[in-house]
Design a protein around this nucleic acid. Sequence first.
DNA 1: GAGCACTGC
Length: 667
Amino acid sequence: MATLPIVQYEDKIIETVENNSITVIIGETGSGKSTQLSQMLHRRGYSKIAVTQPRRVAAVSVSRYLTDGVLLRESLADPELNDYSVIILDEAHERSLNTDILMGLMKRLVKHRSSNLKVLITSATLDGDKVSKFFRDCPVLNIPGKLYPVEILYSKERPVSYLDAALKTALDIHVRQPEGDILIFMTGQDDIEKLVSKLEDKVRALDEGSCMDAIIIPLHGSLPPELQVRVFSPPPPNCRRIIVATNIAETSLTVDGVVYVIDSGYVKQRQYNPSSRMYSLDVIQISKVQANQRSGRAGRTRPGKCYRLYPSQIYHDEFLDVTVPEIQRSSLAGSVLYLKSLDLPDIDILKFDFLDSPSSESLQDALKQLYLIDAIDENGAITSIGRKMAELPLEPSLSRTLMEANNYGCITEALTVAAMLSTESALLPGKSKTEKKRKRPISSLPDGSGLGDHIQLLQIYERWHQTDYDIGWCKDHGLQVRGMTFARDVRKQLSQIMQKIAKEPLDIKENGKGEEFRRDYRNLRKALCVGYANQLAERKMHHNGYRTLGLQGQVVQVHPSSALSSDEHGKFPDYVVYHELIATPRPFMRNVCSVEMKWVIPIINKLNTLNVKKLSGGGVMDHVEEESERSIPDLPKKNVEVAAATDDSESRIQAARERFLARKANK
DNA sequence: GAGCACTGC
């Protein structure tokens, strides 16, 4: 095996690490740097090395490989991370949410920790200087990769359709260029399927013997693993592979034999808008780092070529240098709760030293959400419930639901719901526009008893449990095996953590009684209502649209895929909680659960007491505008008490509700 | 009555 270039730099690296607490190492992915680094440090007497990555990778003997998330969890139990003398943050250029938080923590830790700590940060090119500046001008070492040169070819102008441009370019390469596989970067399953079918038609139409054969291979995350691994088998002789992929082939999967890369210049990216609390999935231009990562895929085995379907001027002028870090496009409730739970002295969360700070709006949004679910008090201090919630690797709403479910005796069910929601999108099979109808009707699965998606997810899992976790059953019902087994693993882990948090042993059964019919799931739904106090919506008076409670009160619809059913008048329930808001051309609530008005009232009262200034540390924020939560129903106190005190008298509640709606209508 | 990049604990 050829010597990896990094070894030539061993002395220099060791010298730098010995003289500095933090070192940035810049090297192309595939330079073998993370494994080599830990081995070389080990040789020089450093033991207790942690290597963390955004994704799971196979373990390497001399060091602990961890994910960023695992190291964050460990730092909860041991804030000084005394188990480690060296921490290597690998692939920092990917800027995952957890990597960014770790970088902030590392900066503090090297200053505060009593015993010596060495931190190495490895990153691809372009953003090294910035990282160095963040760590007080720490040294930067450049390690050349073992990549072969890649010739970059730009288009003269932006194509009208990058799908057609990719098609034409791929055929051109196939007919004219010497052997070597082609890797095409597209944005999603839909694009990929269209391009694959066009390519198949065109390749079939080529004159026999005019050029070599070609096989077209789609590659994206929702393909079952057995189809994904196809890219690892080499092509038959005299045959070229054309792989049409999402950015899964940018970092997660390395395809050997690629000599030509075609880069559409686009990627699909999920973003969070803190002012509307909505997620959207948008097609956006890639960054320069991503473009170079993509072209690098052509030079792994021999010199290659990268065809960029955009002009060089666009690359230089329009592409961002680096991908917008996840921390600037996610909801931060979980991260803020995590940081609060660390009890960092002299640190205001809003002033936490991030490499790239999230907006103050986003941080305030997180604080408001945490307050509504009792994780922090009105002064922004973490509560005892919040402390327990932070132990769970879940979104705060789900952690809070688990806490509450524990009191209501439905922890068994709540664990299942939390686990199923963690895998959520991976659950149902990818079904694209080009694909035909589902093989098996979804109706053969439980329907959530009309109460919504959380309940349906629970019932599906319970049904699966009854089959003794039969893989065949998943396949028969169109459920992704990967998603279901992941849910099972998560559930197991969550129940272990819950057992640890609770002082007394919990009554967690492996599953519910399975009598899903006639169950009204009241306790579970009540727990969900408390957990999702920040994600509540009220149905509008005369139709099935909803208005979210809090903030500007967005008008949203129940997502058409929902299991929630309407009553005999075609009406949805008056109140629901939702797992997330998604901004497609129309805004939808995805994963909803029916809740009752009398559970909602205390939450509305709490919404009325919300004071952002106090939450964010009493005027520490310089530019906080007086925020009004005006769309919160201004329920007169008298009515609230009447309704809350009334037990199950539906008519009284109805009366209170009518007064409440009338008041809203007058505003 | 619409749509799902990626990962993962």
